[in-house]
Amino acid sequence: MPTVIIEPGILAVQTHVLDTTSHQHTLQQITLPIGSVHLNVTTAQGIQSYNNTAIIIKESVPHQLTMHAGWVILIEPTSQVGLQVSAMLAGQEAYLLNIPHAPDEFSHLPTLLGLCNLRFQQQTHQYDPRISQLLKHLDQCLAGTCIKPAHWLAKDIAQQLNLSQSRFLHLFKENMGLAWRPYLLWRRLICAITALQADHTATQAAYMAGFSDSAHLSRTFKKQFGITLQKLLSQNKSQ
């Protein structure tokens, strides 16, 4: 496994020889290179290319990344760190970072964020109490206690929160800035990564996260992040 840091609202991966296809996701992304890096970002003005620089990419912006070594940090936009990133972006699709030095391969998350002039803070955002209750429940997965797929349907979540399904879906998007389904997919992928870190097989991790098999997990991961989970892990194991 590569070095992986998971906190509520944040996933940071230290990787080698990362080469993705063009992709987009609902998360903000910080790329902190240790070696050479080439990044293509698709904006309203066309494809913008960046070389050998740290950069923040706004959520839902298509991009393709080739990096010799470095950190990729994915952030939920409504998290405490995400709100700081949004202020830094100020509506831009990409923001170049002038970091004082390259990050270390074994850096802690506060150190990595500090290089970007961001403060690491635990989640204190004032969500609706029912959404906070749901997020706390989902965070059990970060401790290795994954919620089984049967509990992930919107109608079941709504019932647990004493809401209609339509009211729950509206309330969730209002609080989180994105719909329940793509957010749930992100959390399921986090669940799978957590399971792999705990030495479960890819098949076991896929089942725990609600995917039909490891191939389904791999395809979904590639669609979201431009690289299969197996390829990401094998590249890092070979270093």
Rank of each mutant, 00 (worst) to 15 (best):
A44I: 06
S164N: 15
A69R: 07
A158Y: 10
T43F: 11
A158H: 04
H38C: 01
L96T: 12
I5D: 05
L232D: 04
I34E: 14
I34Y: 04
A69N: 07
L229D: 09
N175Y: 05
P103L: 04
V41N: 03
Q123I: 04
T228R: 00
I55A: 02
H216F: 08
A87Y: 07
W152Q: 08
Q45D: 15
F211R: 03
Y183W: 14
L134T: 02
H137T: 10
L196V: 10
F106E: 15
F120E: 10
F120K: 06
M208P: 02
L32M: 10
H170I: 05
R181P: 01
T194M: 13
K155S: 12
H108T: 12
S214G: 01
A215C: 02
T124Q: 15
G144C: 05
A54I: 04
V13N: 03
H216E: 14
D128W: 06
S214D: 11
T145M: 10
A202F: 15
Q28V: 02
V72F: 00
K148A: 09
P62D: 10
M176V: 05
R167A: 15
V61H: 03
Q159F: 12
T220F: 08
L109W: 03
H216P: 00
V13H: 02
T194R: 14
T15R: 08
Q160V: 07
D19K: 08
P149F: 02
H101C: 05
L134R: 00
Y95A: 00
Y95C: 06
E174S: 14
A102W: 07
I75T: 00
A87K: 10
Q14I: 03
Q64P: 02
A87I: 02
T111S: 14
T21K: 12
K136G: 10
L97M: 11
R130G: 02
T26D: 14
H125W: 11
S107T: 12
Q126C: 04
I193Y: 10
Q159L: 14
A209I: 08
F172Q: 13
S214L: 01
W186R: 06
H101D: 10
Y95V: 01
L229S: 07
H23G: 08
A179P: 04
S79N: 05
L163F: 13
N98C: 00
E93C: 05
I227T: 05
D213P: 05
V17I: 05
S49T: 14
N117R: 07
G91N: 12
V61W: 06
T201F: 13
W180I: 04
L229R: 01
E105R: 08
Y50G: 00
K148W: 07
R219L: 12
I57P: 01
I75C: 00
T21R: 11
L65V: 07
S166A: 15
F221N: 05
A150Q: 12
I56R: 01
T53F: 00
V81K: 00
L97C: 07
G177Y: 09
T66S: 09
S166M: 13
L233H: 03
A192I: 11
E76Q: 12
V13D: 03
T201N: 12
A143S: 14
L169P: 04
